[in-house]
Design a protein around this nucleic acid. Structure first.
Length: 576
RNA sequence: CGGGGCGUAGCUCAGCCUGGUGAGAGCGCACGGUUCGGGACCGUGAGGUCGGUGGUUCAAAUCCACUCGCCCCGACCA
């Protein structure tokens, strides 16, 4: 490709509203442009990268027996009503009506449609297992699109679905996908982590996320260096030290705490208590049921765990006025002692604790000497706590650190969640109808591209892993006005093309500095420079973007050498 | 949805607080010239409904109201 004929609109200055590195660099490299909030156009350079990623994905999916489909993005509402997700997805789903008034939605994911195909067509265990996938656009009306291409409302996802007769089959399918994912991300040159995850709105039993560690990510991952435990904090558990409580009072005692509203206030208040001796009381509505949630004062609620523990579909914190009406006090003075009218969920960390301090349900008063199990009618104990940096690993004696991660892939063991709700059954060997056991597996294509940028860039621009780079080689004659340089460049260009090497030929009539800056910015792994001095000696210069290592080679042997370097670079991507 | 911020040339921004000078700068773009291995220099030029609507005023980019859009921080997910 000749640069002079290409559309590669690089920009010098970083656009003001780009915060994360991948957003800034993809914009500056002339790869993406924003159309509206959460909607991006992919320009030719970006599309080349995405196609390479998709090719790698296809190869690995096909390798494990995957069969590629292409399903509609527009779905009838009935399908989603059958699975129950028409309600669950709420505002995140784009909904519309056709001219006859029928309800439709834009697909957020494709469990429903694939299951609908499966239930019509799969009848016998003899047809199993099946591994189906597609690479297709998904629509999600995100409450807050952000970080460039990382969180958007329309994106390309590779989604795969497996159908098996039984759980052993699903385990195998899941394992295959897991390994395929590892190969995909390895080949894309990403350094990633596999973490235990919550399955959220997808439902199902077990799930794992593929994460790239970067501050641009939105997830928090708890890691143990000692044993390798890694979990999304939505799911993570931890070991915390037992606290030995002194004997308390025979009965809780109310005391005035004027102005005390927070855990911190009460710590500082004379006669108060350290955070780990306080009971934090939160009021939530769980599907319209007012509920009290109890945690240790220094612990934070994990809403994902709350949803999983209760099965609630919609949760929200209660408003101050609602709390006042229910308990007789405003937040800051509420507690669960003596409360019988509402369910009370308590975190395991409060079990057996005595001599605690909590709100008295009277503004500006607290209770001391509270023995949790004696004084509070807990309806359910659960793990509700968000793990924190520095707590103990749940699997070994190590310590957890918490780091930010970007989710690039997620695999789920769905089980029979969809096959049962949507009636996808096959006959087994005994002639008995059994629900298909399903798995679902997703990769965000744009995120893979952005993650590569987040992980691999420098002050000058992007450094693409050669496996997904838009071009393998960029050829830059330093001065197009020099006939000798131009002739040499044209010849090498023709040779590279003939050798099937992906080359971007910077034939623009620009100064060398401009070309070098642009080459660095768009991140082509191998730069071949043709300049006056070296050319006079019959040589060209080869520079590697990542290491900046430079070597001069004879013009005649350049092609061979470049081929060799491409092989080396490719090997290095896989080795990293 | 709650909180914060921003909309002036293709891009980055100044001007606004304290209304009134011919709406500006740098970069980019076009043309001419000199340059030519790390975003060159000189000259000339094109380019704007100051996000939109309404209002206040003799006078609005500037003040007020409404509205649209975008970004960032918190609850969702590839």
């Amino acid at each position: 490709m000749r640069w002079s004929k290409s559309f590669i609109p690089t920009v010098r200055e970083t656009p003001a509203d780009a915060e994360v590195v991948s957003h800034q660099l993809l914009l500056r490299a002339g790869m993406i442009r924003q159309l509206a909030s959460g909607l991006y156009s992919f320009l030719p350079l970006a599309w080349r990268v995405m196609q390479k990623i998709m090719t790698i994905i296809r190869e690995e999916m096909n390798r494990i027996g995957g069969q590629e489909f292409h399903l509609p993005a527009l779905h009838p509402a009935e399908l989603w009503k059958e699975s129950g997700r028409w309600e669950i997805m709420g505002e995140n789903m784009f909904r519309l009506r056709d001219r006859r008034g029928s309800e439709l939605c834009l697909g957020m994911t494709h469990e429903e449609v694939f299951t609908a195909i499966a239930r019509h067509e799969l009848r016998s265990y003899k047809q199993l297992p099946q591994v189906w996938y597609q690479i297709q656009t998904k629509f999600r009306d995100e409450p807050r699109p952000r970080s460039g291409v990382l969180r958007v409302r329309e994106f390309i996802m590779k989604d795969a679905y497996t159908f098996d007769l039984d759980w052993e089959g699903l385990d195998r399918a899941y394992r295959n996908q897991y390994e395929a994912y590892c190969r995909i991300f390895d080949r894309c040159g990403l350094k990633y982590l596999v973490v235990h995850a919550s399955s959220g709105a997808m439902g199902g039993q077990e799930s794992a996320e593929f994460m790239v560690l970067t501050d641009a990510g939105e997830d928090h991952i708890a890691l143990c260096e000692a044993c390798g435990y890694a979990a999304n904090t939505e799911k993570a558990t931890s070991r915390i030290l037992d606290i030995a409580d002194a004997d308390g009072l025979p009965v809780p005692e109310m005391f005035p705490t004027p102005g005390v509203r927070t855990i911190k206030d009460l710590e500082d208040f004379p006669g108060g208590a350290p955070a780990d001796r306080q009971i934090k009381t939160l009021a939530y509505f769980l599907d319209d049921q007012f509920t009290l949630l109890l945690l240790r004062g220094d612990h934070e609620l994990n809403e994902t765990k709350l949803v999983e523990a209760t099965g609630a579909m919609h949760i929200r914190p209660a408003h101050p006025e609602e709390i006042k009406a229910a308990l007789g006090a405003y937040p800051g003075s509420i507690g669960a002692v003596g409360v019988t009218a509402y369910p009370i969920l308590a975190d395991f960390a409060l079990r057996g604790r005595r001599n605690m301090v909590t709100g008295a349900n009277r503004d500006d008063f607290h209770l001391r000497g509270v023995d949790v199990e004696r004084d509070i009618r807990v309806t359910k104990w659960a793990d509700l706590r968000l793990v924190k940096m520095g707590e103990g690993c749940p699997q070994c004696e190590g310590t957890l650190t918490v780091r930010k991660g970007l989710e690039i892939g997620h695999i789920f063991k769905l089980g029979t969640r969809y096959s049962e709700s949507m009636g996808a059954y096959v006959l087994n060997q005994e002639g008995k109808a059994v629900p298909l056991v399903m798995g679902s597996y997703g990769i965000g294509v744009e995120r893979v591209m952005a993650a590569a940028v987040e992980l691999s860039h420098d002050a000058e621009g992007i450094i693409w892993p050669i496996t997904i780079a838009p071009f393998q080689v960029i050829l830059v004659p330093v001065n197009m006005a020099d006939a000798a340089q131009r002739a040499a460049a044209e010849r090498l260009y023709t040779d590279l093309l003939a050798a099937n090497i992906e080359v971007l030929y910077d034939d623009r009539d620009e100064r060398a500095g401009v070309k070098f800056k642009d080459a660095d910015l768009i991140g082509i792994p191998i730069r071949v420079t043709i300049g006056p001095q070296k050319l006079a000696r019959g040589q060209v210069e080869i520079l590697r973007r990542r290491t900046r290592a430079v070597e001069d080679v004879a013009l005649e042997t350049a092609l061979t050498r470049i081929r060799k370097i491409i092989e080396e670079e490719t090997r290095e991507v896989l080795a990293r």
